[in-house]
Write a protein that binds this DNA or RNA. Structure first.
Lengths: 334, 334
DNA sequence: CTGAAAGCGCTTACAG
DNA sequence: CTGAAAGCGCTTACAG
């Protein structure tokens, strides 16, 4: 493991000069620069990131916190964030929360000692609760930059890049209502989720706009996973409710709902239409292809990383950025 | 940002003592220990990971290299690896290769300066080619431990934990043959893939065992993605080939194939049965539910991490571990 | 343009 | 059981 002094010695210069060759090559005369590069190649020298980090007080590393990396939406998000981070010369730490608030809080506490410059929070679970807010503000106090990719965080100065989940669910619901479908069930991701709360609002708004009264609405809850969704939709059906459409908060739940339906002999979309509030890469390849509300994740990941890196650099960043969405109609609802 | 000296001053002890309280608390008398803990809490002190890493020469960080994190199998693998790493006190760096060999090589070169103790390689792309082997052996020379979760790497001393892909594809193919289905098409992930090469072998073995001659076999190639698979299966069908079964190297390709079939009015499994060589979390929720060959990913991730951490600690580890698999028969093939 | 020197914040023999 | 001292490998004013 060659050090900078080894290289300096081999090249007949001082360590300072080697460091300069690495960090501001133009500041060193060509002859020496070449000798240094030759020595670096010869010794297969790699700068020690630990020493560099200690000296500079930064890490060139970001952390991504997701609710569940095994779900396809989060996988796609991670991909785009990773690529964007890479393009900026940052490594990406992956942190899976498994939708657990305790994990989230524990992680926020441990992040300062993990050596990250910035953190991207992309979990649907509600962040505006005291223990999380406390942990967040401690993290910020430690000088770690934070951006949120799922919801707005009140008053802590954490920039957010979010889709308007109310509008997302409203559009999804309206799409079904326009076809004259009723009743329509909203399948939410869980009572602890900020996104579900908003999406539910959008569902309600669309229904009211269509002239439905509140007691005609039907909201059921899952936990973002297919299994629970299958069960709760199954229970609903077994209780004699017969929806004409389902708006699912995410795609695994849409699949769970679909299975509950088909197992009971119902057909999609003929008997029941389904829309997901979340688009995933394989959505078009499901059977039937799943209608969903899409955000351009490639662009989204890049923008999140841009904002975070600006925040790390101490620049002013927009407190709130609205990320556009649009409905993609596929076979599950037409 | 309090430092260890601040804490020492506040507690009226030396920095050495604070360090001991953190790293070997029993070595410090209780009274002082308590004072130190109080000072730590009061100052909200967090040890600097950079300083610690520099001093100890380790990073408490692993890297996971996957072919494509947006694909469901890799998402599930990442989840289990992340959790296992976390349980051992390690952070996990996520590196998406996007199935590009150039990215892989670039990454292997850059890993030493990213500050990782160990690397898990879990890409299907063939690692036994010179540029990759060269980059790998440089990485090992830099003192970074490596384990491979997809294939064996010849002679570099990299431990591997792999499923027997030949057997996986053989089992999948035999499952279809047993039902008297023929012809059966093998849909591979790409000529550059080590896993595909093995899987193809398994397909051929099963067919021969069933008495099929080599010129009856049919192998087509994709790139692990649904899009290309849809296209190549579509072309096959349009050329008049009418398979009774398809063995797909991974799940996205199985979905692509399924779409090509259904778009041409064919039914699964009545007209064509499908099996995937890779099980994914939502496999049971596809329509029809997808038969596939399953590996227990929860267990697998844990074992990979165990081996890697042992290797980092300089312990002897098994050069090759066979990970069991079993066929899960679902609606797509029965 | 270049080098000597200081210092980032820890840990760990070493001496007591 | 505890502290003073050295050193991990860099970077960066500072002086020349």
């Amino acid at each position: 493991m060659a050090t900078i002094s080894d290289v300096a010695r081999a090249a007949g210069v001082s360590p300072s000069t080697v460091s300069r060759v690495l960090n501001q090559p133009e500041a060193v005369v060509v002859a020496k620069r070449d000798r240094v590069f030759a020595a670096i190649a010869e010794l297969d020298y790699r700068p020690s990131s630990a020493a560099r980090n200690l000296r500079r007080g930064s890490f060139d590393t970001l952390a991504l916190l997701v609710g569940d990396i095994s779900q396809p939406f989060h996988g796609a998000l991670a991909k785009s964030v990773q690529r964007a981070a890479d393009e900026h010369g940052y490594s990406l730490l992956l942190c899976d929360l498994d939708h657990s608030r305790d994990r989230l809080i524990g992680l926020l506490h441990s992040l300062p000692k993990r050596g990250v410059d910035g953190v991207i929070i992309a979990t649907a679970d509600n962040l505006n609760v005291q223990p999380v807010r406390g942990a967040l503000s401690e993290l910020l106090d430690q000088g770690v930059a934070v951006v949120c990719g799922s919801q707005n965080i009140r008053s802590l100065g954490v920039p957010a890049l979010v889709t308007d989940r109310v509008a997302v669910a409203r559009d999804a619901t309206a799409h079904l209502l326009t076809q004259g479908l009723w009743p329509i069930v909203f399948l939410g991701g869980g009572p602890g989720s900020a996104l579900t709360r908003d999406a539910r609002k959008g569902y309600e708004q669309a229904c009211r706009t269509a002239g439905r009264s509140d007691d005609e609405l039907c909201v059921i809850n899952g936990d973002y996973r297919a299994e629970a969704a299958e069960q709760s939709v199954g229970t609903l059906l077994d209780n004699g409710v017969r929806p004409a459409g389902i708006v699912a908060d995410n795609t695994p739940m849409a699949l769970g709902a679909a299975r509950a339906l088909t197992e009971r002999g119902l057909t999609i979309p003929a008997d029941v239409a389904i829309v997901s509030c979340e688009d995933v890469p394989l959505g078009a390849y499901l059977q039937p292809p799943l209608s969903s509300v899409r955000t351009d994740l490639e662009d989204y990941g890049r923008r999140i990383v841009d904002v975070l890196i600006s925040a790390i650099a101490g620049q002013d960043v927009p407190a709130r950025t609205l990320v556009p969405h649009h409905l993609v109609v596929r076979g599950s609802s037409s």
